[in-house]
Amino acid sequence: MKKADTQQQGRTQQDVSSLAAYLLGGREERGLSAADLAQRAGLPLPAITALENGRFAEVGPPVFVRGYLIRYCRALGLAEEAVLERYRALGLAEPPPLRLRGEPDGSAPRGQGVLRPFTYLLVLVLLAYGGWRGFELVSTYLAGSGTSGTTTTSDAGVRQELALPNAAPPPATSAAAGSAPVAPPLASAAPPAPPPEPVARAATAEAATLQPSPAASAAAPSATAAVTPSVANTPAASAPAAAADAEARLELEFTAASWAEVRDGGGRILLNGTLRAGSARTLTGKAPFKIALGNAQAVRLKLDGAPVDTAVYAPKRGTVSRFTLGADQAAGSGD
């Protein structure tokens, strides 16, 4: 390829020299000096010299070279058509490409640079992402309105089961039984016994719950902390059915606008709508709660007064989170 180009170049150079020699020979044959010819043809002297030396580019763009060649031939009586034909054959007669101001030679036209494929790829990726987001939103809407069962399965991966801390009832029950044998009679004797707590609480909260029983504080003040789980779990252990049917209280606080949907264990919709920043709702219903939050990071939850760890319902991707709160806890208590 390179060799062919070199050969072509060499041939062109030969043709240029031949044409230049023909012009020079024509002038010398007629015994004219370059200056005489310049005057006769009405051409600048440097142009005559350039043409006779084959330096056509020095004359200017092809339009001028062609015009000067015509004048040169007419002044000497040479065959101008033949000369023009030879000039065209050199491949130098093509007009220069149009360029804009300040545009370098050979620059790619607008929109046809090397970045073009990448631009197309970026647009494709954005379109695909937009489509996926749109599908997700539609799925969310359908799931929220409860019209489609398929959305539940598609979003199964998003659902998060609640795993509350300190929620290990069976060992706690046995430990409590061993360490504080006085606790069960005290707890069972308490007349205004609070509703069974499916969720373990802090020791202070438990203490407050037990305050109605004066015997508890008097009998074993040092064992208050140890008593707590035993007291909490005793009703659950004794009456699992009652725990499952008990009403739970869910508090939602919104730090930013978010849509939310909450259903209780019976499938009843307790909340469905978009709530503004700063608003709060307290819901009471049968556990477990099925919760869907549009902007999960902007919502603080409390279940029966105990804050729920945000890690529990942090969305795996995006901002939407679906999870069940209290169901497995209730079941666990029952077990």
Binding site: A47, V63, R66, G67, I70, L100, P109
Partner: peptide, 30 residues
């Protein structure tokens, strides 16, 4: 010096054609 363009009768139309080819690529303000 004065030279006559090649095929002078069609210069205007041909020039317009070359500009037309550039309008898509470079915009119509050139």
């Amino acid at each position: 010096s004065v030279v006559i363009a090649e095929d002078p009768l069609t210069c205007v139309a041909r020039g317009g054609g070359r500009v037309l080819e550039l309008i898509d690529e470079r915009g119509a303000t050139t």
